[in-house]
C-alpha cells in the first residue's frame, strides 16, 4: 500500500522537500542565539551605566551595531517559529488559529523592523 495520493502519482511529484524546514530553522536560530545572547548579556553587564550617553556610545560601535541587529533578527525569527508551534498546539479552532498566527507574524515583523531601525538610527548618528 502506498501512502502517496493518486494525484501525487499522476503528477509524478516527490515530496515538497520542505518537511523539515521549520524544525531546521528553529535549530539554526537556536545555535546562532547561543553566542549572540551571551555576548549581549555580558556586554550589558560590562557597561558602567545604562544612561543615554553610555548606551549610545556603545551602540555606535560597528561590531555592537552589527551584532545587535543580528540578535534582534535571529531572536524575533526564533520567537516567531516557537510561538507558532504553541498556537498550533493550543488554538484548535481554524479561524481563531489563523487570526492569532497572522497577528503574531505581523507583531514579530514589527519587532524585527523596529529593533533594526532603532540600532541603525543610533549607529548611523541620526539619534542624538
Amino acid at each position: 500500500m502506498s501512502l502517496r495520493t493518486p494525484l501525487r502519482r499522476v503528477l509524478g511529484a516527490g515530496s515538497a522537500k520542505e518537511g523539515v524546514q521549520h524544525w531546521w530553522q528553529q535549530r539554526l536560530t537556536a545555535v546562532a542565539l547561543l553566542p549572540l545572547t551571551v555576548w549581549f548579556v555580558v556586554s550589558l553587564l560590562a557597561l558602567p551605566s545604562l544612561d543615554h550617553a553610555t548606551v549610545t556610545a556603545w551602540m555606535r560601535g560597528s561590531w555592537t551595531a552589527l551584532l545587535l541587529i543580528l540578535l534582534v533578527l535571529v531572536a524575533t525569527w526564533h520567537s516567531q517559529l516557537g510561538v507558532r508551534v504553541v498556537v498550533e498546539d493550543y488554538v484548535p479552532a481554524p479561524g481563531a488559529r489563523t487570526v492569532t498566527l497572522t497577528l503574531l507574524s505581523f507583531l514579530h515583523a514589527l519587532l524585527a523592523a523596529a529593533g533594526v531601525f532603532a540600532v541603525l538610527k543610533v549607529a548611523l548618528g541620526a539619534g542624538a
Partner: peptide, 22 residues
Amino acid sequence: GVALSAGLLLLVYWLMSVAAGA
C-alpha cells in the same frame, strides 16, 4: 520561551527609546 518572546517587546521598546533621544 513564551516569556522570552514577551521579553522581546521590552528589548525593542528599550532600543526604540534609546534611538528616540535622551
